[in-house]
Design a protein around this nucleic acid. Structure first.
Lengths: 150, 150
DNA sequence: TATATTTAAGATAAAATTGTCTTAAAACTT
DNA sequence: AAGTTTTAAGACAATTTTATCTTAAATATA
């Protein structure tokens, strides 16, 4: 698995949030049921995204979370970085600290191009891109087919 | 981190093994010291590679492990698959089982090209490619700079 | 103001990964 | 044949990740 479970859950939630109105807040409880993710676990993940200013949250009735910017302004990379860190966009495949053009490992050149490509697609793809794609074609973002857009 | 620690250790060991003669066996103890990896942990990882027929092993004095084929005949992908499984080359980024062209997730199209590229470079790059690169330019394959080729 | 609702935060638990230790089995050496 | 070296295998422990549970704090509503 390329991303942690936390990261995958975060991506699913963010893509869904980009598909709905940013007017009001969405309760995490409702989100967790819609996405079939443990409520408390999802809460923690969304807290990281809130701490990273990708989400805004509000307590109390009518409270919940919502995107801090429009879905078109949030990249997939921002979400991944907030949860799994920047490693996949920057790190050496062999896990060598300081690996780079000046002080490479044997796999550096072979991997650099691919890593750049990963960085590119995650930088140039927004949450809105994904939510539009999913909503337009009615694609699932949960393992079971229960999920419904809108 | 894109690969598990086990996988990274396995890759380092295999690249090193591809840099030396396949005549005799190399003791895992020696390997573990050279690569600065816990002996018992490395033993387990190499056992997986032996079970997958990428390594041959022999017990007793003069025993150890060696590549089962020449380093030019073993791809990086084979090593990764043996340890981390094929997931990174095949799986959905959102972790959806059955995600594919027929039943995609919203991220499928965006990710497919990159995943194919990962698959390509790991399929077309051999252990020998990496060991030659490392040995020729004297690049490190361990975090500290203690490692010495040959 | 009191109550209900909701996120925040922290404690705890379960599972997976990483790492260590012990014993067994095989092969070489003397 | 006996002893030494080495991988194989399994038990055990530590750490990280994943998941659950409880309490606190904030906010709306009545």
């Amino acid at each position: 698995m390329i991303f942690s479970k936390s990261c995958v859950y975060g991506l699913r939630a963010m893509i869904y949030l980009a598909s709905i109105s940013r007017e009001g807040y969405v309760s995490i409880k409702g989100l967790s049921e819609k996405l079939d993710i443990s409520f408390h676990f999802l809460t923690k993940i969304l807290q990281e995204l809130t701490a990273d200013d990708l989400l805004e949250s509000m307590k109390g009735p009518k409270g919940g979370v919502r995107l801090s910017k429009s879905g078109g302004e949030i990249t997939l990379k921002e979400v991944v970085k907030a949860i799994d860190g920047p490693g996949i966009f920057t790190e050496c495949v062999l896990g060598l600290p300081g690996c780079g053009s000046e002080k490479p490992c044997p796999m550096h050149d072979m991997w650099e191009g691919t890593r750049d490509k990963i960085n590119d697609v995650f930088t140039t793809t927004s949450l809105q891109d994904m939510s539009k794609e999913g909503k337009a074609k009615d694609l699932r973002i949960t393992p079971d087919g229960q999920f419904i857009w809108g």
